[in-house]
């Protein structure tokens, strides 16, 4: 089994290359771009609203004006949800890829999307008509149970949570949960509802959801940045990390916990648009090098930007029946990612 994860083919990749200047530019430019695209996102949609109205709605709120209501109750929560989930998916994907040293890894691999999917299938089949907030909490429970199952399979046995064991346990749990939700969906004929939800979208995001998720997501993003140095060392290989005095078991547990909260909260709000978590870390790694102290914050910024832009697209494409967010993310992300993948050969 060892041969499959062998990172030793390229001993030259031991010293960590990074480009701090590029990373700083991405962080600053990315945040500016997020603010600009957030402003655009608030202005466009089925009803176009001018930027001065947006300003008034924020600072001279008038409850009698419909446009102020739309901005406060629909558009702003939507942009915030996009920024939070994008950052969360991308950062958790970066953590997963760093810890497993597998370019195919993302938060879905911890069973999170599939676990949320099972609970959604159960709630659509047995408790139709749940509120968004209950659906969110319900699917988070599913995500957490799946992650615990994956982590438990890997962690509580002799030899510990090796990267290979983690990805294999993740793939197996994911397949099992997908089969269960498929079976429920086919038997109770809720497949279309489930597919629509999982395809991703932010119509109907409420302030209540933002209030519940934002402290957790922001806290975990900070946690991810604090943990990033250890993740860089772990990405060099288990032996090297131990040799450098890292407590690898503790770091992996913390890392998994961060991934669970970040990705679990995001999936339960916007659905399985986890592709962000797969491609954005690769893009960030290409741009800033293999140091996770830069990859994680840059991934968060780029992920937030990607979801906000894709969500603008989802509304512009066809304002009256929104295009699934996941499809637009792929439409924007795939060509760019493909270009990077073909151009450069690089290590994790």
């Amino acid at each position: 089994m060892e041969a499959h994860s062998s990172p030793h083919a390229q001993p030259a990749a031991i010293h960590v290359q990074s480009r701090p200047v590029a990373a700083m530019l991405i962080l600053i430019g990315g945040i500016i771009a997020i603010v600009v695209s957030a402003a655009i996102s608030i202005c466009v949609g089925a009803a176009d609203i001018s930027i001065s109205t947006v300003w008034d709605a924020l600072f001279h709120f008038n409850a009698d004006m419909t446009s102020h209501q739309i901005i406060r109750e629909l558009r702003i929560p939507r942009v915030l949800a996009g920024a939070l989930t994008g950052a969360a998916f991308a950062a958790s994907g970066a953590i997963m890829q760093g810890m497993t040293r597998n370019p195919l890894a993302d938060s879905g691999l911890l069973g999170i999307n599939a676990g949320a999917g099972v609970m959604l299938a159960v709630s659509f089949a047995f408790f139709p008509g749940m509120s968004f907030v209950s659906l969110m909490l319900f699917s988070f429970v599913g995500a957490a149970a799946a992650a615990i199952l994956v982590f438990g399979t890997g962690a509580f046995v002799k030899g510990g949570l090796t990267p290979v064991r983690l990805v294999l346990a993740g793939a197996a749990v994911t397949a099992l949960l997908l089969a269960i939700s498929d079976a429920i969906a086919i038997h109770y004929q809720v497949g279309r509802d489930l597919a629509f939800w999982m395809a991703g979208g932010m119509q109907g995001v409420e302030w209540a959801q933002i209030r519940i998720m934002s402290p957790w997501v922001i806290g975990c993003l900070i946690g991810a940045v604090l943990l990033s140095r250890s993740i860089t060392l772990l990405s060099l290989g288990e032996e090297i990390a131990i040799g450098l005095g890292q407590r690898t078991g503790l770091i992996k547990t913390l890392g998994m916990l961060l991934v669970l909260i970040l990705a679990g909260a995001s999936v339960s709000v916007v659905g399985a648009v986890g592709f962000v978590g797969l491609i954005i870390p690769h893009v960030a790694r290409y741009l800033v090098g293999v140091d996770y102290r830069w990859i994680i914050p840059c991934s968060a910024v780029l992920g937030a930007l990607l979801i906000i832009v894709a969500d603008i697209g989802a509304r512009l494409f066809n304002p009256y029946s929104e295009t699934p967010l996941g499809a637009l993310i792929a439409l924007i992300g795939v060509p760019f990612f493909l270009y990077l993948a073909m151009r450069e050969r690089r290590e994790l």
């Binding site: 370019p103 195919l104 491609i279 792929a330 990612f337 993948a341």
Partner: peptide, 21 residues
């Protein structure tokens, strides 16, 4: 190999998106 895996991810994801729509 790494390029094959990455290109495979990208192409599959693009097709998956088309399939969702």
């Amino acid at each position: 190999t790494i390029r094959l895996l990455l290109v495979g991810i990208a192409v599959s994801a693009g097709i998956a998106a088309a399939m969702i729509v």
